[in-house]
């Protein structure tokens, strides 16, 4: 396998984790979180700062990144827990921008760390033991394991009675409230779980690249993750993963269509136009995505042989 292919699959895995996080928040619960990149950034920066400036062990930095994402989710949801989803859209996109503005303007420790300089020298886990020509495969295995873990968590949450409440909130918070469910608390929990997963994605990202700066965390990333969930099928977590793979293929595959050096910028623009058009077409003609949500069947009594 070429190094680029390993890189591509690893990145797809990280995006898959982001997409699972949004699948829980939007697909399952209907929360319009347009600030997904903010969680990604918090996870990446907390973990990077922990393992470089603060000198923590990498495992601890990862945990901190996950907790940072969860905490950010809670903070984001607190003021808007009871509000309509159009307010959620605006507040979440603004919160993510706020995070970026803060990291873009704040020096961390010495003058050339943080702010627009970013953070360099982020260590890779177990480099000492596994380092060498095959390290990329090991990191890919780590990402794959995390992805599987996240999928199991999201799937378990969705099938629990708590997940049923989330599904009810997706369509009508009034009915959920009238049946005694604490909608605000459920939304805050969802943002915490989704935030933790996205935080993990961020931590994996920063330790994978070894270098991060604020330009990696533009609002466009949020749009890509949304494209994955919408295309894959909101409400089907496997669909979210399928969407991640397709969008990654599209996004990276179009790099090789010959525009030549002088048209690189044009190619990048057209690539985004293409993904934008694709999303609009999916919303118009395939609103349930390529893998529609599946019904959970309990069976009728006589059929179940009771």
């Amino acid at each position: 396998m070429s190094a680029f292919l390993v890189y591509l699959i690893t990145m797809t895995g990280i995006y898959g984790i982001m997409s699972l996080s949004l699948s829980l928040q939007y697909g399952q619960t209907g929360l319009v979180n347009l600030g997904q990149v903010g969680f990604f950034m918090v996870g990446a920066y907390v973990s990077a700062i922990g393992s470089t400036i603060l000198g923590w062990p990498i495992a601890l930095a990862f945990v901190a990144g996950v907790l940072g994402g969860a905490l950010f989710g809670v903070l984001m949801a607190l003021p808007i827990g009871n509000l309509r989803q159009d307010y959620w859209a605006i507040v979440t996109i603004a919160a993510a921008e706020l995070v970026r503005v803060i990291f873009l303007n704040t020096n961390l420790g010495s003058p050339y760390v943080g702010a627009s300089y970013g953070i360099t020298g982020i260590p890779s886990p177990l480099q000492g033991v596994l380092g060498g020509p095959y390290y990329g495969y090991y990191y890919l295995a780590l990402v794959a394991a995390c992805l599987l873990g996240c999928y199991l968590v999201v799937q378990w949450v969705s099938r629990s009675p708590f997940g049923r409440v989330l599904k009810a909130i997706r369509e009508s918070d009034e009915v959920a409230q009238a049946l005694g469910k604490n909608v605000r608390a459920a939304r805050i929990w969802t943002m915490a779980i989704g935030g933790a997963i996205a935080g993990l994605g961020g931590a994996l990202f920063s330790h994978f690249l070894g270098f991060i700066d604020p330009t990696y965390f533009m609002p466009l990333e949020t749009f890509l993750v949304w494209a994955m969930v919408i295309l894959g099928g909101a409400g089907n977590h496997l669909g979210a993963l399928a969407g991640a793979i397709i969008i990654q293929l599209l996004y990276n595959g179009t790099r090789f269509i010959g525009f030549g050096e002088e048209y690189a910028s044009l190619g990048a623009s057209l690539r985004m136009v293409l993904i934008g058009v694709l999303i609009i077409l999916v919303i118009l003609y395939l609103p349930r995505g390529i893998l529609p949500e599946r019904r959970r069947r309990y069976g009728v009594r006589d059929a179940a042989g009771r």
Partner: peptide
């Protein structure tokens, strides 16, 4: 309205990057 909102997000991307192209 959520679907319209997300569609508008897509339209915005098309317009912005169309302009950039």
């Amino acid at each position: 309205p959520i679907l319209l909102l997300i569609a508008s997000f897509g339209v915005g991307i098309v317009l912005r990057f169309g302009a950039q192209a």
